[in-house]
Design a protein around this nucleic acid. Structure first.
Length: 672
DNA sequence: AACGTCGTAAACACCA
DNA sequence: TTGGTGTTTACGACGT
């Protein structure tokens, strides 16, 4: 699936505005994609054109690289289409481990085959990567040089600015790409096992552009555009969000803020062992009954069994050593990434006139930054649009904004059944969260951190008529979220279950069949009346789409908590305004400007129309005439109908309907 | 510990 | 008979 996403973006979908797909667009804006050489090559290329042409070349290389890796993976149903070549499943497993688990792969191939093929594949990929990055680096230097000259001669500053932007993004993206590939390979736990077979030890793969170089370049380019292409998240199923590294999640080695892997590794090992010694019931490599050794998913019922497994399967040998080195690299990359993201966060907060965050997360042992400490952070530490950090050790990547990587977390092998936790949906209004990360969710197979009810409601409100058939709801899910393009039976069942279960969803029959609408008041009501502080709540542990055992699924609380618990009165006006701005339209808002394609934007557009005190009385949603023939009301408490209209949410406050109804609004729950 | 929420699974009924 | 739709119950995980 990730590959599918990648190929989509490679093809430069019109809507693609981030990740890989952003480059073509940006380059297009800088002068047209393929026409550069042909239309302007009558004479000699001027420096700017040369630059652009080089960019195109680089881009093309990136495309080819990804396409090569995506070979045979364009179909989303790869798992069903067994390819005759063994390389295909291997590739699938490498790129989208959730589609073919290591176990499945092992079933297909014998261990020997598996090993050989993996190594072969990785050797090829690494070589490609290395060559590619080297070339990129050379090109970048060339471009940099030429740009410095161009800068003096070029009169069209704006044009150059655009090119610089594209160039910078290309640069960043290249590094991102590199990191992603590194991580992808590393997480396989099989990279660089034996250098003798042509496999390049991962640690020998020099960064095409070192972080310092990158920073330097960025400075030199003096760009205002803040790395829109930069990965917003580190792609790790095991989890951290780069902006909010959470504690439990963080690998022990995150203790080291320095990018020197050695220290990290040492600390990591020390930490691990000491931790294990002190607390025999837990182990960094053991969780949820499984071995968390990279690439290992062995089930271990208890610690004893795990220790036994650890000693037998992961003893000190070449393989384990290599995997250790790989993990070291992973940590190193993460630390670099973390440093950058933290810096950015700092800058963001400073820019937003917020209280500077506490000492850099990595300046202290991250595992001490518990959810509790996060909880203590003032609400303004989590401005709208910034989901709270996941607190679980299996937190998913969390897109912070639209520029998130298109490479999904699912593209990485998970140490076990995918058990991801999702940040709470209520910390960020679904509309704004979706709006910001629309492309991310669309392309990355990451489960959206919203409840089904929220999503269903969003889907329905997303349409001009505020009503959808079940099938249309399905379509919305699949259209908006890559995650829901698989495992359809499960989530469709959940959708139906939610539709039936929640009173806020009203089924309306019409001639053609039935449509579902949202009873906004009911939706508001269903929010639990009492909320405490904005704690970082572990949200659902998601069972993998491939149908592994359910673990938990919850998308708890919170913007509401955030506001009510910590006192939304303390929020400054602008923040409240921002919250209001990003809220959903209310029930009675007339349909405005809904773009059927990606109607998320429509939500914001509806802000001005939200509010008439519902002349609807809870059970009579505003319906289009053609649909108001029959309404099947679910078990309808009398209080709803008798509730005074004056208590219905009004515009100002209830512009925050989405999951963050303020406490003052809850009295409706207390009505006799 | 009790309770509520949420996601998942599953059984069942109805209907085209 | 089959598949889609809708309802309901049960269960586990998690937070309050």
């Amino acid at each position: 699936m990730m590959v599918e996403s990648a190929s989509e973006t490679i093809r430069s979908t019109p809507t693609s505005q981030n990740g890989v797909g952003s480059l073509p667009n940006q380059l297009d804006s800088a002068g047209g994609r393929d026409g550069v050489a042909s239309s302007e090559t009558n004479g000699e290329l001027n420096p700017a054109e040369l630059l652009h042409f080089q960019q195109q070349q680089a881009l093309q290389m990136a495309r080819q690289l990804l396409l090569q890796q995506a070979t045979g993976l364009s179909s989303p149903n790869n798992t069903e289409n067994k390819q005759p070549s063994v390389q295909v499943p291997v590739s699938v497993a490498m790129m989208s481990p959730q589609m073919i688990t290591p176990q499945q792969m092992q079933q297909i191939l014998s261990p020997a085959q598996l090993q050989a093929v993996l190594q072969q594949q990785q050797a090829i990929m690494l070589q490609q990567l290395q060559e590619y990055y080297k070339k990129q680096q050379e090109q970048l230097h060339l471009q940099l040089l030429s740009q410095q000259h161009i800068g003096k001669q070029q009169s069209k500053e704006s044009s150059l600015g655009n090119k610089q932007l594209a160039f910078q993004q290309q640069l960043i993206q290249m590094q991102q790409l590199q990191q992603q590939h590194l991580l992808n390979l590393q997480r396989q736990g099989l990279v660089g096992l034996q250098s003798g077979q042509g496999t390049l030890p991962i640690q020998n793969l020099p960064p095409a552009v070192s972080p310092s170089d990158l920073q330097q370049l960025l400075k030199e380019m003096s760009n205002s555009q803040e790395d829109s292409n930069k990965p917003d998240t580190v792609d790790l199923t095991t989890s951290i969000t780069t902006s909010f590294p959470s504690a439990k999640v963080s690998p022990p080695s995150m203790l080291s803020s320095l990018p020197n892997g050695q220290n990290a590794m040492q600390i990591s090992r020390r930490e691990s062992s000491s931790h294990y010694d002190i607390c025999p019931s837990s182990h960094p490599l053991y969780g949820h009954g499984e071995c968390r050794w990279p690439g290992c998913e062995a089930l271990c019922e208890d610690m004893g069994q795990f220790v036994k497994h650890l000693n037998t399967e992961h003893a000190l040998d070449d393989r384990s050593t290599a995997q250790c080195r790989v993990q070291m690299q992973v940590v190193q990359q993460l630390e670099i990434q973390l440093a950058k993201e933290s810096e950015r966060l700092q800058a963001m907060m400073t820019h937003l006139h917020m209280r500077p965050s506490e000492p850099k997360p990595f300046s202290q042992p991250l595992n001490l930054v518990s959810s509790a400490s996060i909880t203590k952070m003032s609400p303004d530490t989590f401005p709208d649009g910034l989901p709270q950090p996941p607190t679980s050790a299996t937190a998913p990547i969390t897109p912070l904004r639209q520029g998130a990587s298109v490479i999904s977390s699912s593209s990485l092998p998970s140490p076990g059944p995918v058990r991801r936790r999702i940040v709470d949906k209520f910390c960020t209004p679904i509309s704004s969260e979706l709006a910001q990360n629309h492309e991310f969710y669309k392309n990355a197979e990451v489960r959206p951190p919203f409840t089904y009810a929220s999503l269903i409601r969003q889907a329905i409100l997303d349409t001009p008529d505020r009503q959808l058939t079940l099938n249309e709801i399905y379509n919305w899910f699949t259209r908006m979220f890559a995650y829901f393009r698989r495992n359809t039976a499960t989530w469709k069942n959940a959708v139906r279950h939610n539709l039936s279960l929640h009173k806020c969803f009203v089924r309306v029959e019409n001639v053609k069949g039935a449509v579902w609408t949202v009873d906004e008041l009911e939706y508001q009501k269903r929010r639990p009346p009492k909320m405490t502080g904005c704690t970082s709540v572990n949200s659902p542990t998601i069972s993998p789409p491939d149908g592994n055992k359910v673990h938990d699924t919850r998308s708890p609380t919170l913007v509401k908590n955030m506001i009510s618990g910590l006192g939304y009165g303390a929020l400054n006006a602008s923040y409240q305004a921002a919250l209001a701005e990003s809220s959903f339209p209310l029930l009675n808002s007339p349909p405005l400007l809904h773009s059927s394609g990606s109607g998320i934007q429509g939500c914001h557009d509806d802000v001005t129309s939200t509010g008439e005190p519902g002349n609807s009385n809870g059970s009579s949603p505003r319906l289009s005439p053609q649909y108001s023939q029959s309404i099947h009301v679910k078990e309808e408490p009398a209080e709803e109908d008798t509730r005074p209209a004056s208590l219905t949410p009004t515009n100002e406050n209830t512009n925050l309907p989405e999951d963050r109804d303020l406490e003052p609004e809850t009295p409706m729950e207390d009505l006799p």
